[in-house]
């Protein structure tokens, strides 16, 4: 597999496409640049949907000093949960407004975790990973979500539980999440190693490296 520098080159010609008018029903202030609205919930995953038994499921936070904090499924779902309504934005350009989730705030999970880390690498069942600054997980900005629209989260959407970080492009909201590795330095995750933006702010249209 080639590195990101080989994968992503940018070729741009700035031109008007003759006769193109477009649909123009997506002029919504809640829609970031370059996005269109969908009522569906498209699925994008790099591999097969992992099969995870709830008996074996666990969520682990590992600090930069190697200290582990673990929650079984029963322990996680026993923590106080929050209902979250959020707009979500996929780097493949669809956005979906007012999606309804329920899950545990990362603030709750990290409340008793001693750390001086600035970065987090999220790990998933199936091998996926994604990175983000720790502060983007804190202060009511991120959850481990296990319900969508009042139902348990379907496997193709990341069930039994996925990260929910709605203020960043949705690849950061890792499906089938299994843990957080806290780190003093940034380390690129799966798509971040393949040419996608390190941070992924949809309002600044940070889709690919160099944006």
């Amino acid at each position: 597999m080639e590195g990101p520098a080989d994968v992503l080159e940018v070729v741009v010609m700035s031109i008007v496409s003759r006769g193109f008018r477009g649909r123009r029903r997506d002029s919504n202030q809640r829609l970031p640049p370059g996005q269109y609205l969908t009522d569906d919930f498209p699925v994008l995953s790099a591999g097969p949907t992992p099969r995870i038994s709830l008996d074996d499921w666990e969520f682990t936070v590992v600090t930069e000093l190697g200290q582990s904090h673990r929650w079984s499924w029963k322990e996680l779902t026993g923590l106080s949960a929050e209902s979250v309504t959020a707009d979500i934005h996929c780097v493949t350009r669809w956005s979906k407004l007012d999606t309804a989730w329920r899950g545990v705030s990362i603030d709750t999970l990290l409340a008793d975790v001693e750390t001086a880390a600035d970065f987090a690498l999220i790990h998933s069942y199936g091998g996926y990973s994604t990175n983000l600054p720790l502060e983007d997980l804190l202060d009511g900005k991120a959850w481990v979500a296990y319900e969508y629209n009042g139902q348990e989260l379907a496997p193709e959407h990341g069930g039994p539980a996925r990260l929910l970080v709605p203020h960043l492009y949705f690849w950061k909201s890792a499906k089938w999440v299994r843990g957080i590795e806290l780190m003093p330095q940034d380390f690129p995750g799966f798509w971040e190693q393949l040419g996608y933006h390190d941070y992924g702010d949809p309002w600044r249209e940070q889709r690919y490296q160099g944006d």
């Binding site: 990101p4 994968v7 992503l8 080159e9 940018v10 003759r18 006769g19 393949l194 040419g195």
Partner: peptide, 21 residues
């Protein structure tokens, strides 16, 4: 638009290649 409306001298903006997995 791409499938029906375009003619041979029309131009569109492209960016890529994208995706390395």
């Amino acid at each position: 638009y791409l499938a029906d409306a375009t003619q041979s001298d029309d131009a569109v903006e492209v960016r890529g290649p994208v995706g390395g997995w």
